[in-house]
Each structure stands twice: as C-alpha cells, then as structure tokens.
Measured scan of single mutants.
Amino acid sequence: KELVLVLYDYQEKSPREVTVKKGDILTLLNSTNKDWWKVEVDDSQGFIPAAYLKKL
C-alpha cells in the first residue's frame, strides 16, 4: 500500500472529506483524480485536496 504525508492541516468541509493534521502519515487509496485523493484515516475513508499531500 502507498503512504502519503500530510503537508498542511485540513478541516473537512463535506461528509465525503476527512480532517487531517500536518505531519500525519496516511494510507493512499486512490490518486487517479489529480485534485482530490482518497485516503484512509483511522477507520474512515475520505477525500483530501492532493495539494495537501506528498507521496512517500
């Protein structure tokens, strides 16, 4: 599985998104959309702007 590093805090703005903190390491589930990547946070899944993430 691929991991990503969160570069900036992000507060979810819709139920399909997730809240993350700078420095979090998350599992990347889908990066086919260049603007929004799907990640797994704890036991939930959701989208975060790709610009907030860096592949490890």
Rank of each mutant, 00 (worst) to 15 (best):
K38R: 10
Y8W: 12
N30G: 06
W37C: 03
A50Y: 03
L56P: 00
L3M: 11
I25A: 02
N30C: 13
V18Y: 07
N33R: 09
K54E: 10
E40N: 05
V41K: 15
A51M: 12
V18F: 15
F47L: 07
V20F: 06
L7D: 00
L5H: 03
K34H: 10
I48E: 01
W36H: 03
W37A: 02
W36K: 03
P49R: 06
A51W: 13
D24S: 11
P15D: 11
Y52A: 09
K38M: 15
Y52W: 07
K22T: 06
L53M: 05
R16V: 10
K34E: 10
L29K: 04
E12R: 15
V41S: 13
S14C: 11
L5G: 01
S31W: 10
P49S: 04
I25R: 04
E2R: 13
P15C: 10
T32W: 09
K55C: 10
Q11V: 14
S14R: 09
E17A: 10
S31H: 09
E17I: 07
T19C: 07
N30M: 08
E12W: 15
S31E: 11
D42F: 12
L28W: 02
R16M: 12
K54W: 10
D9A: 06
E12F: 15
T19D: 05
I25D: 00
Y52F: 12
T19N: 08
T27I: 15
K13L: 09
L28S: 00
D9Y: 04
Q45M: 10
E2F: 12
K1Q: 11
I25F: 04
G46F: 15
D43S: 12
Y8S: 09
Y8I: 08
K1P: 12
V18G: 03
L53T: 04
V18P: 02
Y10G: 01
V4H: 01
W37D: 00
Q45G: 06
T32L: 08
A51D: 08
D24P: 01
L5Y: 09
K1C: 14
E12H: 14
I25C: 05
V6P: 00
V6N: 00
K34Q: 11
V41W: 08
L26T: 01
L7Q: 03
G23K: 01
K54H: 10
V4L: 03
V20G: 03
P49D: 03
F47T: 04
K21A: 07
Y10V: 01
F47D: 04
I48Y: 02
L3C: 13
S14G: 13
L56M: 09
I48Q: 01
V6A: 06
V39W: 02
Y8L: 09
D43I: 07
Q11P: 05
D42N: 14
R16W: 15
G46K: 08
L3R: 11
S31K: 06
L3E: 06
E17V: 07
E40H: 06
V4T: 02
G46A: 15
A50E: 03
K54A: 10
D24I: 06
R16A: 11
L53C: 15
P15N: 11
F47Q: 04
W36S: 03
L53Q: 00
T19A: 06
D42T: 08
V20D: 00
Q45E: 13
D24T: 12
E12I: 15
K54I: 12
V20S: 02
K34V: 10
V41Q: 07
S14V: 06
R16Q: 11
W37K: 00
L53A: 09
D42V: 09
K22D: 02
S44Q: 15
L26E: 00
G46D: 03
L5I: 12
R16Y: 13
Y8D: 08
L53V: 12
Y8Q: 13
S44R: 15
E12L: 15
P49Y: 05
K21H: 10
L29A: 03
T19H: 07
D42L: 12
I48A: 13
K55D: 03
W36F: 07
L29N: 02
V41R: 11
E12V: 15
L26Y: 05
K22L: 04
Y52I: 14
E17S: 10
I25T: 05
W36E: 04
Y10M: 02
K21M: 08
D35F: 15
K13R: 13
I25W: 03
K21S: 08
T27Q: 09
E40P: 01
V6H: 00
K1D: 08
L28G: 00
L3V: 07
V4A: 07
L7N: 00
D43K: 12
T19Y: 07
L7H: 01
L29H: 03
K1L: 12
T27E: 06
E40G: 09
S31G: 10
L3S: 06
Q11C: 12
I25E: 01
D35A: 12
D35C: 15
L29T: 04
V18S: 04
A51V: 12
V18I: 14
K22R: 12
L5V: 11
W36I: 05
G23V: 02
K55W: 07
V6T: 03
L29F: 04
L5W: 06
T19W: 06
N33C: 11
E2L: 12
A50C: 08
K1A: 10
Y10T: 01
K1N: 10
N33E: 09
R16G: 15
L26R: 02
S31P: 04
L3W: 13
K21P: 01
S14I: 06
L5M: 10
F47Y: 14
K34N: 11
F47E: 04
E12T: 14
D24Q: 15
W36V: 05
V41T: 15
L29E: 01
I48N: 02
K13N: 09
K22Q: 10
P49N: 04
V41P: 01
A51I: 13
D43Y: 09
V20M: 03
E40D: 06
T27N: 09
S31N: 07
Y10A: 02
Y52E: 01
D42M: 12
T19I: 05
I25K: 05
L26S: 00
D9R: 04
T19F: 07
L56K: 02
L26K: 01
L28Q: 00
K38T: 08
L7P: 00
D43G: 15
W37S: 01
V18M: 14
K1M: 10
S14W: 11
V41H: 10
S44V: 15
K55M: 09
Y10D: 01
L28N: 00
W37Q: 00
Q11K: 13
L26H: 05
S14Q: 08
R16F: 14
D9P: 05
D43V: 07
L26N: 00
K54L: 13
L53R: 00
K22A: 13
A51N: 12
D9H: 05
V4M: 02
N33V: 05
D35Q: 12
L56R: 02
D43M: 11
L56E: 02
Q45I: 14
K1H: 11
E17C: 09
S44E: 12
V41L: 12
N30I: 07
P49A: 04
K13G: 08
P15K: 10
K22I: 04
L53S: 02
A50M: 05
V6Y: 02
K13M: 11
D24C: 07
G23F: 04
G46H: 15
V6Q: 00
L29W: 04
P49V: 04
K21Y: 11
F47N: 03
D43N: 14
Y8V: 09
E40L: 12
N33L: 08
D35V: 14
D24R: 11
S31R: 07
E2Y: 11
Q11R: 11
E17F: 09
K34D: 11
G46N: 05
E17G: 15
E17L: 08
V41M: 10
Q45D: 09
P49E: 03
K38N: 06
T32Y: 09
V20N: 01
I48M: 13
N33S: 09
A51F: 12
S44G: 13
V20E: 01
A50K: 06
E12S: 15
Y10E: 01
L26W: 05
Y10P: 00
I48W: 02
L56A: 03
E12Q: 15
G23S: 03
